[in-house]
Design a binder for these strands. Sequence first.
DNA 1: GAGTGGATTTCGCAT
DNA 2: ATGCGAAGTCCACTC
Lengths: 262, 262
Amino acid sequence: MPSVDRKPLITSLNPDVEKALSIAKDAFSKRQGLLIIGNCVVDYRGRASSKLETGERIAIFKEDGSVLVHRPIGYEPVNWQPPSCVFHASVTDDTLHIRAVRQKPQESVRVSFDRVYLLLVLNLVDRGEFALHASEEDMQKAVLVMPSLIEDGLKPITYEKKVEPGFVDVYCEDKSGRLVVIEIKRKTASKQAALQLAKYVEAIRNIVNKNVRGVLAAPNLGKGVQRLLATLGLEFKHLDPRKCAEVLRKPEKRRLQEFFKE
Amino acid sequence: MPSVDRKPLITSLNPDVEKALSIAKDAFSKRQGLLIIGNCVVDYRGRASSKLETGERIAIFKEDGSVLVHRPIGYEPVNWQPPSCVFHASVTDDTLHIRAVRQKPQESVRVSFDRVYLLLVLNLVDRGEFALHASEEDMQKAVLVMPSLIEDGLKPITYEKKVEPGFVDVYCEDKSGRLVVIEIKRKTASKQAALQLAKYVEAIRNIVNKNVRGVLAAPNLGKGVQRLLATLGLEFKHLDPRKCAEVLRKPEKRRLQEFFKE
DNA sequence: GAGTGGATTTCGCAT
DNA sequence: ATGCGAAGTCCACTC
């Protein structure tokens, strides 16, 4: 593959309208992305309707059919479209129109440039993996620090580091005084995890009393685990690694972290 | 003001790292926006943590301190920061780092470019007004077609076009059989609107019975109107013009529209 | 395909 | 400052 020849982007400075149209059509036909900076108005019609009066903005038309129109300030795009749009470029009255049409729901955005300062054809390669981090240990800490991540009124009693990789256990008391055994998984919880938890809960029940709840806390469940949990009389609680990371960042909780670290 | 001299954007194609650094620092010191396209990695640390491996992306650093890092596909930025960040540019090891730091919550994003294809200093002027449309009449129609916009179990009885500009009234029956008088405002509801509604409700009460509710439906309330409503024994219901427009768009509701148009 | 819940949600308005 | 609700939310996942 002659990737040496690939040009990540093709730049046109202050193209006239016809030139811009030609480039845009070509880019869209090749399913390449397009970035336009210029003076424009934007009209949206669909779930609602909107009109944006003339001004200088950055418009991005991505190869997956998504659209972003950004003003000079603000995190959010002033107009946009999620992926799956079809783009149409046209010129009328010395104005370049880019229309993005979506079918479901039926809606469209039209960006009309009376001046184009810059037009970029995008041919970017991005295979980089994206990862949000929150370690398993972090998740356990987070639950200890803020048990409400699992359930309101929960009080941690003790916790235990497991030798088995992939999960940790926390013991709590719920607001009605029942003992709660929590198994935490940082990724999708498997059937094995549910069975493991069942084993612990059963053991605890035999030792303490009948009022023991088993909670599997994880970002999500594997196929069929939901039903298995029901069969075993266990519960699932959604636990977000990112939320855990957030909890651990809160300064006022840091000391509690230290406490549990001992 | 010599706006003739203003350059909407300053373009640098394939700048070397030192040049890019110099431009970036200058732009940030002048509180100008910056757009960089190049090969980068992105690290985020804050409410959560994330790492994005190497790839070609579009990064926008706006003058209000917001940040967007966009991959070639996808509506959402892969990394971002809302307004209020402080930007720092630096170079280490032939790599251009742009750091965006936010104080509350404390977090930061760092975008590190080992190659810069394009660097833009943005000096865009955008005073265009943005408006989401949904006419007052549309809002009335929408409520008639889908009274659940106001409240579940509501049944429209009749409606009335008002001569006074700025609002329309709808009469409904709630699920417990009480009469509900609804005044709709397409913009922020004023005290005057509340008093007007009170007048109507009072009149209806005298004619019909004591079980009459008064509901002021609007996108939002003016200063102090909330308390006035409480004093008058009236209710406020949020009514979104956009939601109304959406309702009217639904094909299966069109016929009902026609019905009411008669 | 519709419905539900989460998000580094963001944003606006109320208290 | 804090908290609650809405969003043209978007998005992923379940039923």
